[in-house]
Amino acid sequence: MSWVRRREIPLLIFAITFIIGCFGYYIEHPAMGKIYSTLFDWVLLMSNLALGTGLIAMTLYHGKKIAKREKGYEMSFVVFGALILMFVSCYASPASREYLYAKIYTPASIAILCFTGFSEISGLYRAFRVRSVEAFFLALAGFILLMHFAPVYGFFIPGVEKVASWLLDNPAMGASRGIVIGVAIGTIAIAIRVLLGYEKAYTG
């Protein structure tokens, strides 16, 4: 097996960056501080480099799709059109880039968001239907939150907001912290498993 494809390489990179990241957070030393900040500079550099490779990969993918007339190849023309338009507008006229972003991209995103809004409301209806004990508590929590945020409840039932606040600040907070602590402990476990090479999901 070529050394580039060996599973040990990503593991080694993870181990080095994990140790620097972990110890750099706790240890105060000029050398460690410099390594720590250099590492984060590398992260930024690699992210930007990945954008470039992503652009190449996307161009190749859509180019092949058009060349082979694969299913939905017409949309690849739209991708190229949008890509060229945005690229040219960035260099030729920043004002037109702002226009494209604010007047075309943002409204289009919001339109799609509204389309999914239907699903959101229907999902909430399904979530709040009392068909199990968990759903009952979720519906109860939703009702309590309504009492907390809608002043009309306080007008008709004085003091009800205080009950809602107490429930949110005490039992709900306690339960949520339990989940947070569990996740934090699980995070350490995953980090150790990755460090020892048992958890290999990130290598594919």
Binding site: L138, G182, G186, A189, E199
Partner: peptide, 28 residues
Amino acid sequence: TGRLYQVPFVVALCDYSLIGEELLAAGA
């Protein structure tokens, strides 16, 4: 999921749910 604000939706909408560390223990 282990993300706090999404746990209720997962529990209410899915047939089976993994809460918090249950998901993180999945690999094991």
